[in-house]
Design a protein around this nucleic acid. Structure first.
Lengths: 241, 241
DNA sequence: TCAAAAGTGTTCCGAATACACCCATGC
DNA sequence: GCATGGGTGTATTCGGAACACTTTTGA
């Protein structure tokens, strides 16, 4: 090693300019939830490579856009809606992952309430569809790997941070919440105990409203107390299901 | 939007080639532990920009190297040692984060047993030094942000995965282990209870060896049972301190 | 009045806590 | 013997698991 800097001259005598030939993309694992199933949104590609294959929504990042914005734009273009919860989870940079050149992709996941979003096929993609996470089609590029890591990340984070609430309507019942967690974590909880545990955290605000139109005792509606969570978090509180 | 593909033609009519002008780098937050203190390794830059500033060890990634390898190379060049535990934790891509152009950096953290590594200043850097994580100098680029996120990630992961063992010698005493966790999590544990908890996991192999040369009862040495951990993990076991 | 899901109370068990105590070694 | 840290046992408390039970609604 005889290079004066670790940034401006390579160790291998590669001209500096040759380092600036990467493409960056973002790929979004968009989780939705409805009727007890966790799903992700996939598009059917309408161009080569991998024409007609299912793939994650994503896009190359332009030089004047930052990563978070690029990920948000992808989602906005699909759903028309801004300000959706998104979080980066991992970057993938294998040399052969993209046929057009060296592209490093940054994986984001996002959680949306299914009902609110009816994404439509556009010039982007021939079609677009929700898929059950336990029953995915073949995927383009290395998107299978990306999805798997996204699912793994979600399953981990959902246990220790109240991200799950993003998947529900603002007002929800305790049973809906329990069903969601059972689907996310692929397990079953005892109803009384789940209620006790979640209520004892004091993170839900009970509303003076109930479900309507059900042929049984209507359930009380709650909403998540975001402010209180922020306060508790600063005090070292850890959400734990 | 009237682009036929989300990969090959931009939404903004930017020529395709203009997407491939990114630089990619890796930056390593290298944690070490000794004498009850968690430290990270920083280099003093010997070239502009930020000449003479402290910075994370890192390097631009070349077109024919993948990310994990690049991160490993950085560490190998510093310490001469290969096969160190490393894990990616977050990517940083703000537009103005590097004066030389658009560089997205992928953050890695690694855990090393302090004693084994006496990194030396090289052509890479004017000097190199361990810093207490609670007493860091000013850092170049956005490295402060990267370090902070690295520390946050370590503190989270250390609670639910047995990564901490990487920071200790292969053979260690229970008190050393406890001291490490107390330093990492910045808290205190009751000695008898810590021992019971950690031993009840059945993840430590007691050795027929003790400390030597101490003016008190010598402590028994243990080593981490990697194989058993892999087995348990597959069974859904979660390490939890 | 019945089905279905909401919602509550109570017991039991095991794990986490607190804390008192004994042990082995060097000096 | 005594200082020092290693190592153990036990009583208590608290939270989670199991489960039986009551309530409210629509049909």
């Amino acid at each position: 090693m005889n290079s004066p800097s670790n940034f401006f001259i390579s160790e291998n005598n590669v001209p500096f300019i040759d380092y600036f030939k990467f493409g960056i993309s973002v790929d979004c694992v968009i989780f939705g939830y409805s009727k007890g199933r966790v799903r992700i949104l996939l598009i059917e590609r309408d161009a080569d490579p991998f024409k007609n294959s299912w793939a994650l929504p994503g896009d190359l990042v332009s030089l004047n856009s930052n990563l978070d914005d690029a990920a948000n734009d992808v989602l906005k273009n699909l759903t028309g809606i801004d300000n959706i919860f998104m979080e980066q989870f991992y970057s993938f940079g294998e040399m052969d992952r993209h046929p057009a050149g060296r592209v490093v992709t940054v994986g984001y996941y996002s959680l949306v309430e299914n009902k609110n979003y009816n994404p439509v096929a556009s010039s982007w993609a021939k079609s677009i569809q929700w898929f059950d996470i336990y029953n995915l089609p073949e995927l383009a590029f290395d998107h299978k790997k990306i999805v798997m890591r996204g699912i793994q990340t979600l399953k981990r984070r959902v246990r220790y941070r109240p991200v799950g609430f993003e998947l529900l309507p603002v007002k929800f019942t305790l049973t809906e919440l329990q069903d969601l967690y059972e689907a996310l974590l692929d397990s079953k909880f005892d109803k009384p105990n789940f209620r006790k545990k979640i209520l004892s955290m004091d993170l839900l605000i009970p509303l003076n409203e109930t479900q309507g139109n059900v042929s049984h005792r209507p359930a009380k509606l709650y909403k998540f107390d975001e402010k209180r969570y922020e306060l508790l978090k600063d005090d070292g509180f850890v959400f734990d299901i």
